[in-house]
């Protein structure tokens, strides 16, 4: 795929891509690797530094940090990729729909988007979690909801700008049905900016989840999460820096990976657009 090739060509894109692939592989393969069970408590070995037995050390309950990091990756990436994917799909469908809908429906949709978008994301997420309770499933639904308006707006704006382009009119005069135009021509062109937004969104969701878990509003223990590991590490910082550092580095790497990936995707799409214009 030319997209992958283009991303590979840019140095930052290459780094982002490699990191992201490593992280995803790590997260996917975690249960198959010979790791300490992430929830195995071993109070005797608590807060120990890296050793041959525990490669990254242990947390305040003696749980292996390497294992908790990799399993935490499953949560972080799983959640962020799912949430972003869902928000992308739902948002695009609604956004494209709004562009074709009657005015009143479009207006109503925009009002809802504005309402959701008016709140700072983290505050809104906190409020929703406070109302509906924490936990992975709730988090999934709530964070998706929070991000749907962004995707909806981009999808709608793209569709609107495409609708009257000459090449679409040419398809109509050739006899293309509205369905064909939608799926063959509108959607592929809409997906471009939507995918870029998605890739820029993933690091944000990762950080949001970590932040919520840090505050105790996110993943319920004992499920491994970078955010809760970070919080616990923060409390026991004077006794051992390792939990905080490992979780922090993991978070940073994940965020970096997807941000670089997103930026190089954006770079790929922009010059193409410029040369078309």
């Amino acid at each position: 795929m030319e997209v992958v090739a283009a991303v590979w060509r840019s140095p930052t894109g290459r780094v982002g891509l490699i990191l992201a692939v490593l992280l995803v592989c790590g997260a996917l393969l975690a249960p198959l690797l010979p790791l300490w069970p992430p929830n195995r408590i071993d109070v005797a070995a608590r807060l120990s530094p890296p050793s041959a037995v525990h490669w990254l050390g242990t947390d305040h309950l003696g749980r292996d940090l390497l294992s908790r990091c990799l399993f935490g990756a499953r949560v972080a990436l799983g959640l962020s990729l799912t949430v972003t994917g869902l928000a992308m799909v739902v948002g695009t469908v609604i956004g494209v729909g709004m562009a074709y809908a009657p005015r009143w429906a479009e207006r109503a949709g925009l009002v809802v988007f504005d309402l959701i978008g008016a709140y700072p994301t983290v505050i809104l997420a906190l409020a929703l979690v406070a109302i509906f309770g924490p936990g992975v499933n709730n988090l999934l639904v709530l964070i998706t909801l929070v991000f749907v308006p962004q995707f909806g707006r981009i999808a709608r704006a793209q569709t609107m700008s495409l609708r009257h382009r000459p090449f679409l009119e040419a398809e109509i005069t050739l006899g293309a049905s509205p369905a064909r135009i939608l799926f063959h021509h509108v959607l592929p062109n809409v997906l471009g900016p939507v995918i870029v937004l998605a890739s820029m969104n993933i690091p944000f969701v990762i950080t949001l989840e970590a932040g919520l878990s840090f505050l105790g509003f996110g993943i319920r223990p004992p499920l491994a999460s970078w955010g809760s590991t970070l919080y616990d590490g923060f409390i026991y910082l004077d006794q051992s820096a390792w939990p905080a550092v490992t979780a922090g580095v993991a978070l940073s790497l994940a965020t970096l990976a997807f941000t670089l990936l997103g930026e190089s995707l954006q770079g790929y799409l922009d010059p193409l657009r410029r040369s078309r214009a």
Binding site: P166, F167, E169, A170, I172, T173, L174, G175, P188
Partner: peptide, 22 residues
Amino acid sequence: RRWLPFHVQIIFQDPVASLSPR
């Protein structure tokens, strides 16, 4: 839509824009 394209066609003012860029 099913009948007209076989009888009347149009060429647009900006030919490059009338071709899908993808």
